[in-house]
Design a protein around this nucleic acid. Structure first.
Lengths: 160, 160
DNA sequence: CTTAGATATTTTATGTTTGAAATAATTCAA
DNA sequence: TTGAATTATTTCAAACATAAAATATCTAAG
């Protein structure tokens, strides 16, 4: 084995380790934050995190979203969205409307109750995130967010 | 309102936004990677991600782990671990051993089959991560991992 | 020794999640 | 127009996940 081959091997081994370490850190960080947010949403508002996520997505789209758009945006399966929307509908927070000229689709949107309910939760949610990420200065946060942006561009649309 | 109060308000608003944006990016990045790894583990090795995670944890500890250690390390509930270990045991990949002098606890460890099985998967897993995180140079990865370390120190042990 | 409290795990009920199959509606080429 | 692909959603079974309650065991004060 030549010296340059040795170099290459060593470099690859380093890559291997640092990227794996990065992934494990990323995963642990998001799991830790997610757990904490889940817990606070449950105890404070008696709402599950998936339901909050759905409502957050719908809140951004006053015109409503298709089931498939929700599925893609939240990166969860179609069947999952169906169940979540069923339960949110039962609770009067969300409604399916049959407009369009396409009878396969139904546009889902927040009800008035859903919007009001979400606005309350969203305020707390923002505060909690600022608390949980207080280790990062705004500048660091900005930089880090920019760094992580590559995923959005790369993977967007590849959802299940 | 004084000028410094204006400044303060403006700063807080910025914090708010940048940290929330960071959280959303972090979440999307880890979900995207997690989805892709889940998919590849399923199609290539017919294994679920949670099962892989359990096996990875156990592989690092040849002496085995307590259920509660697994739960804490993986940041999932106790009951969840019970089910996962039950299924892995049924498949002969994991075993509970009743050593200790404490009959409340059982030490869980990989069987020979489990270790062999995991070693295969782990090699692919490492490659996939390097592929999926190839946007980051080893140096960037190292830096980013270091940045995300704060969570480990802050939250470790606060599991559910 | 007894037993109150602590610890480790499992059980239970409910909800989430997936992937595959089924259903329903649309589109478009022949 | 027909009907074969495509698209959108739902249904289904199995696994995953949580929180709370139950069970079992251990520990240590009295």
């Amino acid at each position: 084995m030549t010296a340059s081959q040795e170099m290459l091997k060593a470099n690859n081994a380093t890559d291997d380790k640092s990227r794996v370490r990065l992934w494990l850190r990323l995963l642990r960080a998001s799991r830790a934050i997610e757990s904490e947010l889940r817990e606070r949403l449950r105890t404070t508002y008696n709402v599950t995190l998936p339901r909050f996520d759905v409502m957050a997505a719908l809140y951004r789209e006053p015109e409503g979203m298709l089931m498939s758009q929700l599925s893609k945006y939240l990166m969860v399966s179609n069947g999952n969205v169906t169940g979540l929307i069923d339960r949110l509908t039962t609770d009067g927070l969300v409604q399916r409307t049959l407009r369009d000229g396409d009878r396969r689709t139904s546009v889902v949107l927040l009800t008035k109750a859903g919007r009001e309910n979400f606005e309350q939760m969203a305020a707390s949610h923002r505060e909690w995130i600022n608390e949980l990420l207080s280790h990062f200065s705004p500048e660091e946060a900005e930089t880090l967010a920019e760094t992580l942006k590559v995923f959005a561009s790369d993977w967007e649309g590849e959802a299940r």
